[in-house]
Design a protein around this nucleic acid. Structure first.
Lengths: 159, 159
DNA sequence: GATTTTAAGTCAGTCATGTTGACTTATATG
DNA sequence: CATATAAGTCAACATGACTGACTTAAAATC
């Protein structure tokens, strides 16, 4: 039962194959975040600040509710990091014209500088991994991670 | 400058391609851990307990120092969760015969039950993603994540 | 126009998990 | 015997998550 032959595309996945995939995700996430954590610490920020900065950069004028849906945290949790970022001049807020209840978030120039610094580090790491692995591997990486993500959030990656 | 054609294995990686890869990792990690977090909460445990249980299961008789090297946390951080797991009977400790300073960790039967429950959830998720993506994609997933991991830790994945 | 719903913010308290620093104990090694 | 190593401990602190209760302002609905 344990020594089934594993072809190139096995229908039956052995536990140790799956555990390898689990561990790769753990180690990769650990190392992917570590460099930025060190940079953020020099600003008195943490990983939570990075996530806000990152997603505001990707979607300028994102609303608070949209950001909460991405991060899957409570508004009280977001509030602490967001109000820090706003009061220290990394993020600016303006009311939406159509619906003046909504607050739209942008990076300030200062915020953009930090975002670029952080993103350059992460692009360098993932870029090196992409180049070393090759284009087909990148496609596989995308397919598998997309399959891990909750179904409702996969549409974020349709182009 | 922005509309370079992207072949199947582009040497030049556009920022938005890299950002997609970054976001896939973020969402996948977020969703990969969420289910287990909910199970762990019913035991009064958190993600840190899971990591200990997981890696002790993979390497029975792992030492405290080896576990610290994997988790990249301080011994004081590990101490809290590990001593909880030991006092509640999920992990057992015994001195190494050759070097009686080293403490070797094992799962108890109770610990193994929990480990299997958690790993089944994660194997199901990654297994479904693997099957949906196909064998070549899995190979790509592995290659890219391996490239993201710090060089010194890549040897963990040599067989 | 009054009521209800929605978007966001706030206050207060708690918990999990990480950190640093200082120190102890037991054991192995030079 | 002296030193180095593996592990544990005590204390204090930071970060980032949580729940619950409440407020404010604006939009939507009855």
């Amino acid at each position: 039962m344990t020594d089934l032959k594993s072809g190139p595309n096995p229908l039956f996945l052995r536990h140790d194959q799956l555990h390898q995939g689990i561990e790769l995700l753990f180690y990769a996430y650990r190392d992917f975040t570590a460099e930025c954590d060190a940079i953020l610490a020099t600003y008195g920020f943490g990983r939570a600040h990075h996530r806000v900065i990152y997603f505001v950069a990707r979607s300028p004028s994102i609303s608070v509710a949209e950001l909460l849906a991405i991060l899957r945290i409570t508004k009280q949790s977001l509030s602490r990091v967001l109000s820090q970022l706003v009061s220290e001049g990394f993020v600016s807020v303006q009311k939406a014209q159509e619906d003046r209840r909504r607050r739209l978030l942008q990076l300030t120039d200062k915020g953009s500088v930090l975002e670029r610094r952080l993103s350059e580090v992460q692009r360098a790491r993932i870029g090196a991994a992409y180049r070393a692995a090759g284009g087909d591997a990148v496609e596989g990486y995308r397919k598998v991670l997309l399959g891990i993500i909750d179904e409702n959030d996969r549409r974020r990656f349709e182009e």
